[in-house]
């Protein structure tokens, strides 16, 4: 089946796949050929594409959603970075900054939520880069 990973800055993947593992908000799940039509929200997490050539491509996804229909899987992610393109050192540095930023918003719920999400995205990228 075909898979497309689209982001606001451009398409990240386009091709024939055997399956895709995605981080749904209600839990991770895998999509194989013949899946029922589905629209699902995606959490910040790891996305794994198993290509028709039996390769595994891993992406760090920062939230989004997916539409599965007629053997086409379309993933719209706000951000989808291939694991080999993640600069772990830069992300670690960003993690420190983000943790400091989070500490600043102890009393401000809106700022705290936003800072938390930022930190979650960075941690996810670091985790995925280890793959």
């Amino acid at each position: 089946m075909k898979a497309h990973i689209l982001t606001p800055v451009g398409p990240v993947f386009d091709g024939e796949v055997e399956g895709v593992q995605m981080p749904g908000v209600n839990g991770g799940f895998e999509v194989l050929k013949g899946h029922a039509p589905l629209v699902s929200l995606l959490d910040i997490g790891k996305l794994v594409v198993k290509t028709a050539d039996h390769e595994q491509l891993v992406f760090a996804v920062s939230g989004g959603f997916t539409e599965i229909s007629e053997d086409v899987v379309t993933i719209l992610a706000e951000e989808a970075i291939p694991s080999d393109k993640i600069d772990r050192e830069a992300e670690e540095r960003q993690r420190e900054e983000a943790e400091a930023e989070l500490a600043k918003h102890l009393l401000d719920t809106e700022g705290h939520k936003a800072a938390e999400i930022e930190l979650k995205k960075i941690k996810n990228r670091i985790k995925v880069s280890r793959n």
């Binding site: 908000v25 209600n26 039509p37 589905l38 629209v39 929200l41 959603f65 229909s69 007629e70 706000e78």
Partner: peptide, 24 residues
């Protein structure tokens, strides 16, 4: 044509999609 499953509920999905639409 197609009858989709929605996860979570369509209302929740729309809550995410509409701000995204405005951002885009």
């Amino acid at each position: 044509d197609i009858d989709y499953l929605y996860e979570p509920k369509p209302d929740t999905i729309l809550e995410y999609l509409l701000p995204l639409h405005i951002n885009i």
